[in-house]
Design a protein around this nucleic acid. Structure first.
Lengths: 154, 154
DNA sequence: CTGATATCAGTTGTACTGATATAT
DNA sequence: CATATATCAGTACAACTGATATCA
């Protein structure tokens, strides 16, 4: 009586239709694909957002990068240590504002980013495999609205 | 050239349109709403799925409950300790299969579930606030397809 | 024997806090 | 002075592993 009797839904209970739960499961799976996939080439989850943000918006201080990549300033330190250790980014003191470091993408970093870009793209395809192209766009659209609405509070 | 020039998207870069990232942010926010909201009435995140699964499908062994509520068997033990300690569920040995405990929802647990149900519903509303009713349904539909496709591997 | 069950101890990773030193 | 930055130490929790004892 509360639902149409000819609905093709196999699990019509409240638990499995709970948006926060569905989001959690889907996100967990996406995260696993990315984390494990990147680990296979010796990269960690946060490497990609940091490298990509550097390429998209250019060199930045760590505080700026932290906002762009949406990674905590304290955690960013460790990620940059790894990336700088592998020569993918350079950390140089900012002479204009001596509190800051300027983080720059190196040529090696650009090549690494190209590699990760291909992988990341494949993972998205795997994650969204059961959806049509139109559905993928719609999902991204809806999620973008959600994320934008809740803004900085992630 | 790759995108329509009059698209209203404010952030057209690859990073902010990445499905796995969007899912992660949205899920994190939903999780926070639920976790903090439940904490306000002394409940923890996993209490709701366990109580709801018990009501939806009836009494079950812990292993069964673990599958239904999608919570790890080892973590379920602690959750059941809490729920049983508050008298919301009963843990009784199964006389038919003496490896098992049978977990039953008490009347007190049913009332608790009613309370949490109302709260959870409000959190979903808050989470999906910027979406129309049709968009909410569509989002749930798309996520359900994703979760179903990736199945047990969460 | 195998396999499932309930439990516990412990690991890893993530999001986050608090404090510190330094500079604007 | 307040504010911003980079760094480090540490917390809380979630997902998960491995081992154990018990039983079918």
């Amino acid at each position: 009586m509360t639902d149409s009797p000819d609905s093709p839904r196999p699990t019509p209970d409240r638990l499995s239709a709970l948006p926060s739960r569905l989001l959690g499961f889907a996100a967990l799976h996406g995260d696993r694909l990315v984390t494990e996939g990147l680990a296979a080439v010796g990269a960690r989850k946060w490497h990609y957002p940091v490298l990509a943000a550097l390429q998209e918006y250019g060199p930045a201080s760590q505080a700026e990068l932290s906002r762009r990549a949406r990674i905590y300033r304290s955690d960013l330190v460790a990620v940059l240590n790894e990336l700088a250790g592998d020569g993918y980014v350079e950390r140089t003191p900012d002479r204009a504002d001596r509190r800051r470091n300027v983080i720059t993408l190196t040529d090696r970093g650009r090549r690494r980013l190209d590699q990760l870009d291909g992988l990341i793209d494949a993972f998205q395809g795997e994650l969204l495999a059961p959806l049509t192209a139109g559905e993928r766009d719609e999902l991204v659209r809806l999620l973008t609205v959600l994320v934008a609405h809740h803004g900085e509070r992630m």
